[in-house]
């Protein structure tokens, strides 16, 4: 038994690494069943009338981009495919480079015009105080847009948006933690009765079940939610532009499943060793 307790845990890291590398290299993918939460997320966007103004908040950084960027990409495709108008904000300082690159790639596919169909307002410091300010007065929070430094009232989309949240039909956040969806619910959702959607990291997902469906119309939980959502978006996005992302996600989920099997096996083995050791001592 002593040899089991002296087992070097680095072997576990190595086996997990080799398992993941091997399965990624194999590149097998399989479709996933879509959950109710993802279905609601998709349906909430899909039911909005053409031309609706939607605020998208990128509240993430590189540490969570693996989970949230696919959701963000899918959401932008979905919104532009349905001819929605997007007001993009960020409450995390590392998010703007991601949003800029996504829009630079996706907007031309749908002939979306900057300032009319989408606008980037950039990062606003202040966490939930910033969210409260956005809810109270978008013009005060962002006197200028960030891409061309145009004044708020010189941007047609922002003019249509007005100053309050009243003209914004939906608020979507890609939330990696604090500040994120829980702060949007408190500062904007509860105060201005605006419909909310969220894409979240796996760590934050358990917190959201209690808010669905009353305060949160739908959410994408972790890489699983992202994969399911991209499967749905693939049907509405232009010319299979999401297909590659969808297949990548599906392939990653298969690797994830096997990595989980390995983890479960480790937990069972660990427990067996623990209880056997306790019994003998």
């Amino acid at each position: 038994m002593a040899s089991v307790h002296d087992f070097d845990r680095r072997w576990i890291f190595l086996i997990m690494g080799l398992l993941v590398v091997g399965l990624v290299a194999a590149g097998i993918s399989a479709p996933m069943p879509v959950s109710e939460y993802v279905d609601s997320y998709f349906a909430t966007i899909d039911k909005l009338p053409e031309g609706s103004i939607v605020m998208v908040s990128a509240d993430f950084d590189p540490a969570s981009a693996a989970e949230l960027l696919p959701m963000y990409t899918g959401t932008i495709h979905h919104l532009l495919a349905k001819k929605m108008r997007i007001v993009n904000v960020c409450t995390w300082p590392a998010a703007p480079p991601y949003t800029a690159s996504r829009f630079a790639e996706i907007a031309p596919m749908y002939d979306a015009v900057y300032g009319e169909d989408w606008v980037e307002l950039g990062f606003l410091p202040g966490d939930d105080v910033a969210m409260g300010t956005i809810g109270q007065s978008l013009r005060s929070a962002y006197p200028r847009e960030t891409k061309n430094n145009m004044a708020y009232d010189d941007v047609p989309l922002l003019r249509d948006c007005g100053d309050s949240m009243g003209n914004i039909e939906l608020l979507i956040t890609m939330s990696a933690g604090y500040p994120g969806i829980l702060e949007w619910i408190a500062q904007v959702g509860g105060r201005y009765e605006i419909e909310l959607l969220a894409g979240t990291t796996a760590v934050q997902t358990p917190d959201l079940f209690a808010f669905y469906p009353s305060q949160l119309s739908g959410f994408l939980g972790a890489a699983t939610g992202a994969t399911q959502y991209l499967q749905l978006v693939d049907d509405v996005a232009i010319d299979g532009s999401v297909t590659a992302d969808k297949e990548t996600q599906q392939s990653r989920m298969l690797v994830q499943t096997w990595a989980h099997y390995f983890m479960i096996l480790l937990i069972i083995v660990g427990n067996v060793i623990y209880f056997t050791g306790r019994k003998s001592s």
């Binding site: 993941v20 989970e67 990653r252 690797v255």
Partner: peptide
């Protein structure tokens, strides 16, 4: 789930 997603 989240940590393994990052590794993958």
């Amino acid at each position: 789930l989240g940590r393994i997603a990052l590794l993958i």
